[in-house]
């Protein structure tokens, strides 16, 4: 009944992620989203960068492209513009997307190209053993912030909105069913869609920040997340330290591949003159 999502996995499981790693939960949610969307496997392209979460493309039975750190959106943009028929997803970590990949991220938002981008935000560079990222909250510890992170962090929702994304949502690995729904809605949306999936990293982030293990971290999300519609009725003090989830923004604008078709039509028309 529920296990139909496993048909989207390749036969090279179990995966390499640590015990209790949120990446596994997100990959399950992603597979369930594809099931909801009922996409044909051959028409799906999944592109990832480098980092723990980016190993996801190795396990998914689609057209998969594991690129370089921070560059997934550049590869995906070229692929989508060249072959718009491909249902294109980009899956990256928080460092991958917001640090080294930040320039490609804001420009992909700006272009409004029909790509669904999932940023798995576990607040840390896990693969390299626990350094802070641009999404690590101030004050949190990391191997490169032994005295507490002094960097202010991005709010991916605000950043995406400022850069022009036309569907922006935030989910989390505790609300895993809801995360599938947010991903499916993102894919249904025509234009650049961003889903921030707040996730957990018990080994690199949890241990450095006094979490008592994987379950404790999921419990933290259970307690700290609050749905957007409830949050919008609360005053800011009450929202202190809360993680607001839901669909934050949805708007329509010309999709980038449609703009190409418009250009090509005018060129053809012009040529006939």
């Amino acid at each position: 009944m529920q296990t139909a999502y496993k048909k989207y996995f390749r036969d090279n499981l179990p995966h390499i992620w640590c015990p209790g790693c949120g990446n596994g939960i997100v990959m399950g949610a992603f597979a369930r989203a594809i099931e909801m969307l009922d996409y044909d496997k051959d028409e799906v392209l999944v592109v990832s960068g480098i980092g723990c979460s980016s190993r996801i493309t190795g396990y998914l039975d689609f057209n998969t492209l594991h690129t370089a750190h921070g560059r997934a959106l550049a590869f995906a943009t070229g692929a989508k513009v060249a072959e718009p028929r491909l249902k294109t997803f980009v899956i990256m970590g928080d460092g991958d997307a917001a640090a080294i990949g930040g320039n490609h991220f804001i420009h992909a938002c700006r272009r409004n190209i029909d790509i669904t981008t999932i940023i798995i935000n576990n607040n840390i560079y896990g693969m390299t053993g626990g350094q802070f990222s641009p999404l690590t909250p101030k004050g949190r510890k990391a191997t490169t912030a032994p005295y507490g992170n002094i960097d202010r962090s991005f709010d991916i929702v605000d950043l995406s909105k400022g850069a022009g994304a036309t569907y922006i949502a935030r989910g989390d690995v505790f609300h895993a069913f809801r995360l599938s729904y947010l991903i499916a809605e993102a894919a249904r949306h025509k234009g650049f869609s961003v889903v921030e999936a707040v996730s957990t990293c018990p080994i690199s982030y949890g241990r450095h920040n006094k979490f008592k293990g994987a379950a404790d971290m999921v419990n933290y999300l259970k307690k700290r997340t609050i749905a957007l519609n409830r949050a919008s009725r609360m005053n800011p003090e009450a929202l202190e330290g809360k993680i607001i989830t839901g669909i934050f923004y949805e708007s329509e604008d010309e999709e980038y591949c449609d703009a190409f078709e418009r250009l090509e039509a005018s060129v053809k028309k012009g040529a006939r003159k």
Binding site: T67, A74, F75, G78, L86
Partner: peptide
């Protein structure tokens, strides 16, 4: 064909590798 001016040269070569990977 399709022409793109990308945000920098890293994006440029990323995009052409992406396009080549899907047949162009």
């Amino acid at each position: 064909g399709r022409f793109m001016q990308m945000e920098d040269e890293i994006a440029s070569i990323g995009a052409i590798i992406g396009a080549s990977c899907v047949g162009h």
